[in-house]
Nucleic acid binder design. Structure first.
Length: 854
RNA sequence: GCCCGCAUGGUGGAAUUGGUAGACACACAAGACUUAAAAUCUUGAGACCGUAUGGUCGUGCCGGUUCGAGUCCGGCUGCGGGUACCA
């Protein structure tokens, strides 16, 4: 019997789909629209298993929705700007554009081999001038709407290479190439006013019912709305005001000191004639710019010698410190510290021997003896040591204090957000040029729309560190669009997250002169199902949500949220291997001996198996999709990435797993090509009267349709796979007598259609074998006959004191009392009920009977 | 540091969302077919005790709520993601 030749078959059907334009999307179609999108790939060079998994998940959705009568938009493009291209340019003397477009060509070929139902006519790369030019137009729209501004902000500065470093390029505080200690430096940079939409971005989360709760929670915490009190301390020595913001005004009587950020204007001024403070501020600047580095750094402070007056007691003076854990970006850059109610304040107070006054008393503690030791208390309680607040609940005290401050005019209720404006400036070449010109007379002037795109120069050198646009001999020199005098182009390019904040709109009308056709975008969006990694849970998804709002604000769309449904997939992992020379080893050269020990096939060294980790080139625990497709075919690879793990969890890639998937593909092929019994003629429906086995198979068929449909709708692909394994077992089992041939044909046709979204090539091949002329891709999804999916009886467990002692089979809608009677009559139940008296019997219809004996 | 997840047999996982834990698959073992191997088919199996009917234990750890907890609550441990210039 012939075996399934995946390679030839897959190429054949891919050609047929391509020539028939099967997956071309028609925006003018009358059908209901369904936009499914996977996060577009960065063209790193070759596709990896994570890509295969991501795009297979989306492809199943796309093919399933197509079969269910939707006009599906399922496009593909390239997130093509970014640092790796510049690194390649430096390391291999290859132009970033050449490197990027070569990678795209390779990866496009690879993706096409997997047989995705993608409309390739809509493909673009964000580094195409046709794309980034439109992005420049949007940026200018935002500028005109007041959503773009410039301000000074910190960057990582490598003092040897004289260049700005990304956080990733700072390793243990040193520049990754120069090894020099990295400093923080201030540069004038471009910002987008995402904070204008903070409240709306927060409120919108409630409408995103098909987003994972965890992602909504992460975004909520990231936006970090808080209500508190803003007030000003008076500096005793100078009479100046020092504004502070606090979320815990109730703890004001627990105040112990006041702390300001090292880059607070007051700190800067004091440092001018205080060398010690100056060097302290410089020391603080050696901590990286990341939140992680700042928060993990040891709490340090510098006593300025100044004091502020407590707002509720003119005679109470608090010392003013400069502290490395106070952030200039949050609130006012100055805080009042209550060590009893904040861990960082407490650590600081202990270190500098400052008072710790408990002000919130936990329930059950005694006010006289209550002390704070090493842990601050942030929970609920009653106020103590707080004068007029004493005895109040902490929550009420907060409100009371704010009311008092407002009534007396020394402070006001303030809403504050943790969210900061989005700094989009990058001092790099391979990104979208920010379309502005600096003129001595006119200031910062946008490039006129008719002059867009501002294209990147091609003749650039990466011989010296820094921004090649800055070093280019001619590119930045231009004329002011406003007055015509000599002027200089902005040499900053945009954060690549800008590119990925609107690409899903561009896909709707990829050839449009404008950034997109608003009507068509309004029609397709929101994306019905967006699929990608959780690592994008905050930044990318928040920026895209912001862009969508900003584009609505400037009148380009009427879309509120970009992604109606979000699914975050897990990573693809693999065991790691190291040989006796402590070198990482590729899995493909690892073999096991009979005793289970491992060795390298290329040089014979002993190998030990390490932890299971995310596939990564550095640890060599990668499996190349090309090799897998070559050996087993795309359908097998697709089936495996869908089969073993729920898609939101990590998928462990194993050799045995892919073998199992391969065997299943063969099995389905055999079932159709060499059925276990004769099958009915083409088009013959099962008769009314069926033998027992035929009826059982028919019921299995329709139950499987119902189950698999629900599983795919809920993206539970691994469950759909398990169900299909079971169904294949049933279809290969005994089926004889009246109606058997027709029922078997129905079962096999159903199997082929249900497997279709997951193994599309195999499905087409078998569908044809079964006599069909139409493509599976154009065939409607099968419908379950409801009457065949319900059973008349139901199995129920009978428990005694929570332990299962018997199972009974009863009619589906048998009354509780009768079920109880049958359960109590069971011999194996009696054995246990006889030991005591029956106290209670709980009957949950269709589920369980629990008899409480005591 | 902070925010967010995850943890079930030898392995990946399932469990109708508080109701029979271990579906389905992988790996393993025994058997059938075969000169042989591969492929395929059949059977077995959470652990422990027992010849067996059966019983006890069991969802990372400790505790709680409930007739009933993998599922809910409190406290831990381990691993992973994010932390604003990796994408």
């Amino acid at each position: 019997m012939s075996r399934y030749n995946a390679k030839a078959t897959e190429a054949k059907w891919q050609k047929i789909w391509r020539e028939a334009n099967t997956f071309k999307t028609d925006s003018k179609s009358d059908k209901p629209k369904y936009y499914v999108l996977e996060m577009f790939p960065y063209p790193s060079g070759r596709i990896h298993m994570g890509h295969v998994r991501n795009y297979t998940l989306g492809d199943v959705v796309a093919r399933f929705r197509r079969a269910n009568g939707f006009e599906v938009l399922h496009p593909m493009g390239w997130d093509a700007f970014g640092m790796p291209a510049e690194n390649a340019a430096m390391e291999r003397k290859v132009h970033p554009a050449d490197w990027t477009y070569d990678n795209i060509a390779n990866m496009r070929d690879q993706l096409k081999q997997v047989g995705f139902a993608i409309d390739w006519d809509r493909e673009f790369a964000t580094c195409d001038a046709e794309y980034y030019g439109k992005e420049q137009q949007i940026f200018i729209d935002f500028f005109n709407a007041g959503l773009v501004y410039r301000k000074e902000s910190w960057v990582n500065w490598d003092p040897v290479d004289n260049t700005v470093l990304a956080n990733e390029q700072v390793i243990d505080g040193k520049g990754w190439r120069s090894g020099a200690t990295v400093e923080r430096r201030k540069l004038s940079q471009w910002f987008l006013k995402i904070t204008d939409f903070a409240e709306d971005l927060l409120g919108g989360l409630k409408t995103l019912e098909r987003w994972p709760d965890k992602v909504r929670l992460m975004q909520e915490n990231w936006i970090g709305r808080s209500e508190g009190l803003k007030f000003s301390f008076k500096i005793a020595e100078t009479g100046e005001d020092l504004p502070v913001y606090t979320t815990r005004p109730d703890t004001l009587f627990g105040a112990s000191f006041c702390a300001i950020a090292p880059d607070h204007p007051l700190a800067a001024r004091l440092a001018e004639d205080n060398a010690e403070l100056k060097s302290f501020a410089e020391e603080c600047r050696k901590t990286g710019t990341t939140e992680e580095a700042i928060e993990k750094a040891e709490k340090k402070g510098f006593n300025t010698g100044l004091h502020v007056r407590h707002p509720l007691d003119k005679d109470w003076l608090l010392p003013v410190y400069v502290a490395n854990f106070v952030l200039m970006d949050y609130g006012t850059g100055a805080i009042f510290a209550c060590p009893a109610g904040d861990q960082r304040d407490l650590d600081f107070a202990r270190k500098y021997d400052l008072p710790v006054i408990p002000v919130v008393l936990p329930d059950g503690e005694d006010a006289a003896s209550y002390k704070i030791a090493d842990e601050a208390y942030t929970g609920p309680g009653k106020m103590i040591n707080s004068r007029f607040l004493d005895g109040m609940d902490a929550v009420d005290a907060k409100a009371a204090l704010i009311d008092k401050a407002e009534a007396e005019g020394w402070g006001e209720r303030t809403v504050n957000y943790r969210l900061r404006d989005w700094g989009v400036s990058r001092q790099r070449y391979w990104g979208t040029p920010i379309p502005f010109v600096h003129c001595d007379d006119c200031g910062v002037v946008p490039v006129p729309s008719e002059e867009l795109p501002v294209k990147l120069p091609e003749d650039v050198s990466f011989d010296k560190p820094g921004n090649p646009l800055e070093h280019h001999p001619t590119w930045k020199h231009t004329k002011c669009p406003s007055c015509g005098k000599k002027a200089v182009r902005e040499t900053d390019t945009m954060d690549t997250f800008v590119d990925s904040s609107w690409y899903f709109m561009r896909f709707c009308t990829p050839d449009e002169e404008a950034p997109f056709d608003s009507d068509v975008v309004n029609d397709w969006l929101p994306v019905k199902q967006y699929i990608g990694g959780v690592e994008h849970a905050i930044l990318h998804l928040l920026y895209a949500r912001f862009f969508t709002r900003a584009l609505k604000h400037v009148g380009r769309t009427n879309v509120d949220e970009p992604f109606e449904g979000l699914f975050t997939q897990g990573m693809v992992t693999h065991a790691t291997y190291k040989d006796s020379d402590d070198e990482w080893v590729f899995p493909e050269v690892v073999r096991a001996r009979d005793d289970g020990s491992l060795y390298r096939t290329d040089n014979g060294l002993e190998v030990s198996e390490g932890r299971i980790e995310k596939m990564s080139k550095s640890k060599k625990n990668v499996v190349d999709p090309d090799d897998i497709i070559d050996q087993y075919g795309a359908d097998t690879a697709r089936w495996f990435v869908l089969s073993d793990s729920p898609p939101e969890r990590d998928l462990l890639w194993t050799e045995a797993g892919i073998e199992g998937a391969w065997r299943f593909a063969q099995r389905v092929f055999r079932l159709v090509n060499n059925p276990p019994a004769p099958i009915g003629t083409f088009g013959a429906a099962p008769p009314e009267a069926l033998s027992k086995t035929a009826e059982a198979l028919r019921k299995a068929t329709h139950k499987t349709i119902e189950g698999v449909t629900a599983d795919i709708e809920n993206l539970h692909f691994n469950k759909a796979v398990a169900r299909l394994y079971e169904f294949a077992n049933a279809a290969g089992g005994k089926c004889t007598g009246d109606g058997a041939p027709e029922v078997l044909r129905e079962a096999l046709e159903t199997l082929v259609l249900l497997v279709g979204p997951m193994m599309p090539h195999l499905a087409e091949e078998l569908w044809k074998k079964l006599g069909h002329k139409e493509l599976v891709a154009n065939t409607p999804w099968p419908k379950a006959i409801k009457a065949l999916t319900v059973d008349d009886t139901v199995k129920m467990a009978v428990q005694v004191n929570g332990k299962v002692r018997d199972t009974i089979e009863v009619a589906k809608d048998m009354p509780k009392e009768e079920v109880e009677k049958i359960a109590l009559a069971s011999d194996s139940v009696k054995k246990f009920t006889d030991e005591g008296t029956i106290r209670k019997v709980i009957v949950v219809p269709g589920r369980i009977v629990n008899i409480v004996v005591g």
